[in-house]
Amino acid sequence: MHLSRLILPAFLLFVLPHAPAAAEAAIGVAVDDFSYTDTSAEPTNQTAAHERRLSAFMAALRRDIGEAGRYRQVPSAQDGAAFKVIGGIQKTSTLVQWAKVAVIDVGAKKLVMDKLYTFRGDNDESWERAEMFVSREVMAALATPAPVALAVFEFELEDMTAASAGALAASDASYLAEVTDAVREALGQSGRYRIVEVGREAAATAGALRDCGGCEAAIAKELGADQSLIGVVRRVSRTEYTLGFQVRDAGTGAVLSRGDSGLRLGADYSWKRGAVRLVGDRLIESQQAAGAQER
């Protein structure tokens, strides 16, 4: 059995949102029994030993997750689980085993962890070490919010100079594309956001998003995003510009965040650097600070 089959991505389609009671402080976590596969082709039948060690592994994992009191064990998503932990272990040779572990945010239907680990040995001590490591990784994932699905639309140019001819010059289009790509990369690398693909067709149909009264939120929702982001470069003169962005909730259209750089000096090629800094300061760092306060 391939490790990729140990955890079925299709599970995400069937988990149900939970509705935890307000009075419950502990967060519900459902930990499914991991599967076990031995493909080592060893002559000795170790099924009984593996069943015993896997049982001890799962008992210890559940104990460690609930030990601090922040989380409580529940049987399933239907019973109020905010998170679900699933996984499988495969023995590939006498000394090498692999563990595939995923943590699912049930309400958001998103993976907050999906990792493959290797551990050496197949005795009680090696299984205990593996469980201690995996439990730390799972606890860290439970404390980390699922990334927000964000549709980042192409940055637009608002040319306020007297020389503006209306049509977008090829050089301007190139610089705007660089700005958009750099902002998407910065947001994706932050870990706070999962960038949703915005097709050229969707962007072209929308036209100038800065003047559509928030229509980008509806487009983002159709794309499966939680939030939308639009950005504008305003050219004041050939060497002066401002940058701005706005984030909306894809479901409600409400403005969640916005930022403006104020007047900046620099040639067109400096737009990218300015946009990344603005988004980093006003969006990424502010979200990280808010997350730290919540924890």
Rank of each mutant, 00 (worst) to 15 (best):
S4C: 02
H18P: 10
A25C: 04
V29T: 03
D33M: 11
D33G: 06
T37R: 05
E42I: 08
N45D: 14
T47M: 15
A49I: 00
E51M: 03
R53C: 10
M58N: 14
A59L: 13
R63G: 14
I65F: 10
E67T: 05
R72T: 15
V74W: 01
V74P: 02
Q78D: 05
I86E: 04
Q90K: 06
K91H: 08
L95G: 14
V96A: 00
A99E: 07
K100P: 08
K100E: 12
V101H: 04
V106T: 11
G107A: 13
L116I: 01
F119P: 08
R120C: 09
R120M: 15
D122C: 00
A130H: 09
M132R: 13
S135G: 07
R136I: 11
V138P: 06
A140H: 10
A141H: 13
P145I: 09
V148C: 09
F155G: 04
L157W: 09
D159W: 14
T161I: 03
A162L: 09
G166T: 04
A170G: 06
D172N: 02
A177Y: 05
E178S: 10
V179L: 01
R192W: 00
Y193E: 12
E197H: 15
R200T: 10
A208S: 05
R210N: 08
C212T: 13
G213I: 01
A218K: 06
A218T: 06
K221T: 04
K221Q: 11
E222D: 11
A225V: 07
L243S: 09
V247G: 03
V247H: 01
D249T: 10
T252Q: 09
G253D: 12
L256K: 14
D260P: 04
G266T: 00
S270P: 01
K272W: 07
K272C: 02
V279Q: 02
G280A: 11
D281E: 14
R282H: 15
I284M: 04
S286H: 08
A289S: 13
A292F: 13
A292S: 11
R295Y: 10
